[in-house]
Design a protein around this nucleic acid. Structure first.
Ligand SMILES: [Mn+2]
Ligand SMILES: [Mn+2]
Ligand SMILES: [Zn+2]
Ligand SMILES: [Zn+2]
Lengths: 134, 134
DNA sequence: AAGTTAAGAAACAATTTTTATCTTTTACCT
DNA sequence: AGGTAAAAGATAAAAATTGTTTCTTAACTT
């Protein structure tokens, strides 16, 4: 994936810190601010938490990154891709994507309701396969 | 609704502050901590924010109250009731319940996926009826 | 390639949000 | 009514987030 281009398209300067943030986000799939800070600090020992927050926010505002809110958990951040839902294992804490047709989810609103959804957030909490086999 | 009983069933002492919190939550349907603090302070001018947090947490841990996380918004809290989804208007900020069969939502996980959902969180973001007619 | 400039990084301070600790008060059980 | 443990109030502390100022660098202009 070409992060330089993604940043340039959004008029965000390409800095090593930003490339590092995006690389880490991509590698872990979903990552919390604190985990991101621990990992990015290994590459840029002098990076400040403020820089991290500012960058993540800039990326959210330009629709490059998305905050995923999870019941009873700290938020995680991911690089935006096709709409999808998430599986959160309440036993081991694993968190991953799952492909669910979000248009169908949106079609399940009761008839007669006038609300026009533009986006929806769906997190399934439960027990993952690995935890079931224990 | 009998809040005294709901508290007693959970071995939480019935205090005027707790009854006030539950009443406000019920009246507004969903409320943020800060709004709750503003309103509860009118009844109990000396109540501390720490008391509010402690109580809300105690109620969450005993499954009387639930935190609802909303994309790009502060969390709101509601008294637990039958599973349902939420509509969030990105224009006016209105936030309300919508009845969606959550079992069907859970049945939409791809076949072959072993994950066993116990609960799911679904928030539709979009434009409410009132905002469409403007 | 060197110079210019405006965005971004770092350092640090300040806010805001949440939790912990301690003392006083109160709900609730004999 | 009296005893006791839980909860409220009052701070203080910790954690999370944002703001400010200065220094550095990416990217544009010659
Ligand atoms: Mn995802
Ligand atoms: Mn609700
Ligand atoms: Zn698991
Ligand atoms: Zn609206």
């Amino acid at each position: 994936m070409n992060y330089e281009q993604l940043l340039r398209e959004r008029d965000l300067k390409v800095t090593p810190q930003r490339l590092g943030i995006l690389t880490l986000m991509h590698q872990s799939g979903h990552i919390s601010i604190e985990d991101l800070y621990v990992k990015i600090s290994r590459q840029f020992s002098s990076i400040s938490l403020a820089t991290l927050y500012k960058n993540v926010h800039a990326m959210i505002e330009t629709a490059l990154v998305k905050e995923v809110k999870i019941p009873n958990m700290k938020s995680k951040y991911e690089i935006i891709k096709a709409p999808h839902a998430h599986l959160f294992c309440t036993q081991c804490g694993s968190f991953e994507d799952v492909t669910v047709p979000m248009e169908e989810i949106e079609a399940m609103l009761p008839h007669g309701i006038q609300f026009k959804p533009t986006e929806s957030s769906l997190v399934y909490s439960g027990i993952c396969e690995a935890c079931q086999n224990k």
